[in-house]
């Protein structure tokens, strides 16, 4: 494998907590081994903001809660051969998706924002407004899983997935041997 050109990998965190990127670091010293086969392109880990060229693998953490998330995800789909969703937020919306079904509300997004910025207890928001700076990305009506926005190729379940599972999946994908997960290693939490 070492004779082959290095695979290019890009990563991003959309509506996630960066926990899945921390889980990537949980590969520990195997990262050194992995880095002999992989070069990291656009990623928060390298602080590269735009694709320098086409990538073999794109790793997506988080679902889509605003328009910027959608643009980034579409950009990844356009520039990556294989798109991997990592963690429950990318797979099914995760914790941010709790705002989709706030109980007994016809306008869950409005209710969520009003409680967070105006009506909730212990709030010290002197403006009494929901933030509306034009620089803020527009929120979507709902939080969407990545697979409802673009075609996803592989999903690594977990919140966050274990470093071992991420390493094994990436190693198998790079070797062209990925055939799914063992049932006793799948976790949704």
């Amino acid at each position: 494998m070492s004779e082959l050109p290095k695979a290019r990998v890009a990563t991003t965190s959309l509506a996630g907590c960066f926990g899945c990127h921390m889980a990537i670091l949980d590969m520990d010293e195997r990262l050194i081994d992995l880095m002999s086969h992989v070069e990291i392109d656009r990623s928060p880990l390298t602080d590269i903001k735009r694709f320098t060229r086409r990538c073999d693998i794109g790793i997506i953490e988080g679902g889509c809660c605003n328009e910027e998330n959608v643009h980034v995800l579409q950009d990844f789909r356009k520039n990556c051969d294989v798109l991997i969703g990592i963690g429950q937020c990318a797979i099914m919306g995760g914790l941010p998706a709790m705002r989709n079904a706030i109980m007994h509300s016809d306008e869950p997004l409005r209710e969520c924002l009003e409680e967070a910025y105006i009506t909730g207890r212990n709030i010290r928001n002197k403006t009494h407004n929901v933030p509306n700076d034009p620089a803020l990305p527009l929120l979507l009506d709902q939080v969407y899983p990545c697979s409802q926005v673009v075609k996803m190729d592989v999903q690594i379940p977990g919140c966050a997935p274990e470093g071992d599972l991420i390493y094994d999946t990436l190693a198998k994908l790079l070797a062209g041997r990925f055939r799914g997960f063992e049932p006793d290693r799948v976790r949704f939490d």
Binding site: N100, H104, M152, G180, P183, F188
Partner: peptide, 18 residues
């Protein structure tokens, strides 16, 4: 879901009932 390998990207919409 673990046993039946429910890990592929979903084809179904989320109903998200209240």
């Amino acid at each position: 879901a673990y046993r039946l390998d429910m890990t592929e990207p979903t084809k179904f919409p989320y109903l998200e009932p209240c």
